[in-house]
Structure formats: C-alpha cells, structure tokens
Design a protein around this nucleic acid. Structure first.
Length: 197
DNA sequence: CAGCAGATTGACT
DNA sequence: GTCAATCTGCTGC
C-alpha cells in the first residue's frame, strides 16, 4: 500500500509521473479487481485553466479537490461517465491527477461483467470513463481515502524515465495556452493506453 | 429559469 | 464519420 506521504508532495506533475506503473485496486460489491496505471494527467489547481478549480473556483463538485492529498475525486462527465482522480498536495490546495487508463491485472472476469460491451482486455479500461466502469468506480466513491478498504494503490512496477512519454492533455482545448502544457503521461509502447490523440 | 458545453463513450449511418 | 446520452455548473435573459 502506498504511504500517505506520497500524495502530500507539492509537485502534482511529478506525482502524475510516479503513478505510472502503480496498481490501482478496488473492492466494489465484494469483488476485487485491479489494474496497472499506464496513463495519467496532472491538473495543477488554481493556476491551471483546464482544472475545475481554476481561479479558486469552489462548488459542491470541486470542493473535493481542496481536501488533503490521498483522497479520491470522482465526478460525472457528460452526465454519464465517472472520471477517477487522485487528490494531491496539502489540504486547501486543489491539485489532482486524472487516471486515464489502466492495464487489467486482477479480477478481469469481474471487469468484463461490468463492461459487457468490451471485446478484449485491450479496451477494457483504456479510457477515463471505461476504467471507472471496469473497476466499479462510481460517484459514490467520491471523497474516500486511498487507504480505505474500498479503493487503494499498491507499489506495482517501477517505470524508467525513458519509458515515460509526456504530451498535451486531452479534451481541454477550451483551456487556451494551458491546453498545451505537457501534463499527460503515458508508458511508451503500452497497448493499454487510451485511444485519444 | 432556460440554454449550453464539458477532463467521454458506444451505437449507428 | 456522426451523434445521442444526460448531470453539473456557468451565462444571460
């Protein structure tokens, strides 16, 4: 299990990189499933136009991002998809890392049951909405601690720096100049990354 | 209070 | 390639 100190660091971009290769485990409805994180995006709080908390915006939805690092932030996108984020930094600073894709490890049968539309392991959790559904993450999992019995992270694999690809984030064109920041991180040559360009 | 756009995905033309 | 699904929050009447 990852120690809480890991999430409290003040460099959200570094944490986004460090999260690659770690194992995300959920225990939803009594069924355990997990995947190795292969793609993340950093959202740097009030100075980042792509972040929900840009400019210190505080709503019922975004209040979760202001909590202490190591808290889960799950929100509904397009009214349909639960997107899973990990809050970082100290309480009061709204930093978060979006988990965009995982490579299925444990409970793969359970994941297929949750996503009958998926045809292969490759597209079981290769997107932020897909991964949440595959692991059974819903908005009721918002504001949980990552050391709870329902959702947590394991150390997993160590990813070398040269295996990490940095690129602009996806679907945030409205963020103007901040949309170009290389805050998206992927594992090189990993086929389980999201399809997004 | 109506209208619209979004950190997306899957079904259908 | 195109489009509907449908919740949250912002803008403007």
């Amino acid at each position: 299990m990852i120690q809480k100190e890991f999430y409290l660091k003040d460099d959200v971009v570094q944490i986004a990189k460090d999260l690659l290769g770690k194992e995300l485990v959920t225990n939803s409805n009594g069924k355990i499933s997990s995947g190795s994180i292969v793609e993340t995006e950093a959202y740097a709080g009030i100075i980042d136009k792509a972040s929900h908390a840009y400019g210190g915006k505080f709503t019922k939805r975004t209040q979760t991002m202001y909590l202490e690092g190591g808290t889960t932030y799950v929100y509904l996108c397009y009214g349909i998809h639960s997107l899973f984020n990990i809050v970082t930094n100290k309480s009061g600073i709204p930093h978060a890392v979006l988990i965009r894709a995982v490579q299925p490890l444990k409970g793969i049968d359970t994941m297929f049951e949750r996503r009958p539309e998926s045809k292969s392991e490759r597209n079981l959790a290769n997107g932020p909405g897909s991964l949440s559904k595959a692991l059974g993450i819903k908005t009721i999992h918002n504001e949980l601690q990552l050391d709870s019995k329902q959702i947590w992270l394991e150390e997993g694999l160590k990813i070398k720096n040269e295996k990490i690809i940095a690129s602009p984030r996806v679907g945030v064109a409205y963020a103007k100049e901040d949309a170009l920041l290389p805050y998206r991180f992927r594992i090189k040559d990993n086929p389980f990354c999201s399809l997004a360009k």
